Simulated assay, not measured.
Amino acid sequence: MSRLRVRALPAPLEAAVPVADPATVRPAPLTRDAIPGWFFRVDQEAFGHLLAAQTAAGRTGDILELGAYLGRSAVLLGDHLQPGERLTVCDLFDSEAGDAENAAEMTMSYRKTLTRTAFEANYLAFHAELPEIVQAPTSVLADGRIPAGSCRFVHIDASHLYEHVAGDIEVARAALADEGLVALDDYRSEHTPGVSAAVWQAVFTGGLKPVLLTPMKFYGTWGDAEAAQRTLLARDWRAEGYTVDEDAIAGARVVRLNRPAAAAPSAPSRSAPRRLALDLLPPIATRAVRRALRTARAVRGRSRVPSA
């Protein structure tokens, strides 16, 4: 039987675990990719590589996720837990938000699908035991319940509102060990300017050092960014079909990682036999064939025009 560790929260933040209606419980996913969410392949690979490299280097520590949705990223984070480490997940799930703006965002994006019951079912489809769950606004973690310096990796994907994201970044900063890594979602989306503002404020005034950029996530550290980048680039991403580029932000190097877009289908061309035949005919015959083909296409075009 799995053990569920839920921290008691002070009223009115404490959230009772809702009793699920059996008629609305989703079946457990058969694969990780079947879990709904926006945790895409490039970030799945980046998470896995960085977490595995930490373990290979003997670096230990807890993992923290602020904002979990239905568990797609939490399942992967749970894959990398080592003995003695814990994963803590903080999310409102289906409890009420504490302010009007956050409530409006939840209603617009998540309210119909996000439930704690669904998250737990998805997680338990791949792990024997649930993570530690804090069902509350992520702001409650500012009370120090996550021991300072206890985490090696923090994933922030909760609110898109500037004030909340800025607070989540401070929670991450306090929770991370010296060489710990933080990943922030939606740092560049047009509908999430508050995330962008909080991220770049942390970079330019809060000492957060960029490590990696993907289309969806910003990865950074308050430790040695160059060491993290060496770890990242020890993998031959290009050989696996990824694009790898480098930029500089205020004199500091940052790596960009992406999968190339699928090539657009080319315009249909003549069949090879027809091209060969036209190439082998003498010029006068080729011109005659081309005129005949143009005439035939014109006749077919007129036949498709509906009569009045």
Rank of each mutant, 00 (worst) to 15 (best):
S2E: 13
L4Y: 08
V6L: 15
A8E: 07
L9R: 03
L13A: 07
T24N: 12
A28V: 00
P29V: 05
D33M: 08
G37F: 06
W38A: 06
F40Y: 15
D43N: 09
Q44H: 09
A46I: 01
T55W: 14
A57H: 14
R59V: 03
D62Q: 10
A68I: 02
L70M: 08
R72Q: 14
G84V: 03
G84A: 02
L87D: 13
T88H: 05
L92C: 12
A97F: 09
N102H: 10
M106V: 15
M108I: 12
S109V: 10
R111E: 10
R111M: 12
N122R: 04
L124F: 06
F126T: 08
H127K: 12
A128K: 15
V134L: 06
V134T: 08
V134M: 09
Q135C: 15
L141N: 07
G144W: 08
G144Y: 09
R145N: 01
G149W: 11
G149H: 14
R152C: 05
V154I: 06
H155D: 05
D157C: 04
S159A: 08
E163P: 09
A166I: 11
E170W: 09
E179F: 00
G180E: 06
V182A: 05
L184K: 04
Y187D: 10
T192G: 06
V195A: 07
S196K: 02
A198N: 05
A202D: 08
G206I: 01
L208I: 02
V211W: 04
L212P: 00
L212K: 09
L212I: 05
M216S: 08
M216L: 13
K217D: 01
F218E: 03
F218H: 11
A227V: 03
A227Y: 05
A227R: 15
A228P: 09
Q229W: 06
R230H: 08
L233T: 05
R235K: 07
R238G: 07
R238E: 12
A239V: 03
G241C: 07
E246Y: 02
D247G: 05
R253P: 14
V254A: 10
V254L: 05
L257M: 10
N258W: 14
A261N: 11
A261I: 02
A262E: 00
A263Q: 11
S269A: 14
R270N: 04
R270M: 00
R274I: 01
R275I: 04
L276C: 06
L280D: 00
P282Y: 03
A285G: 04
R287L: 09
V289M: 14
R290T: 00
R290V: 00
R291S: 00
L293Y: 00
G301W: 03
G301V: 01
R304P: 01
P306S: 13
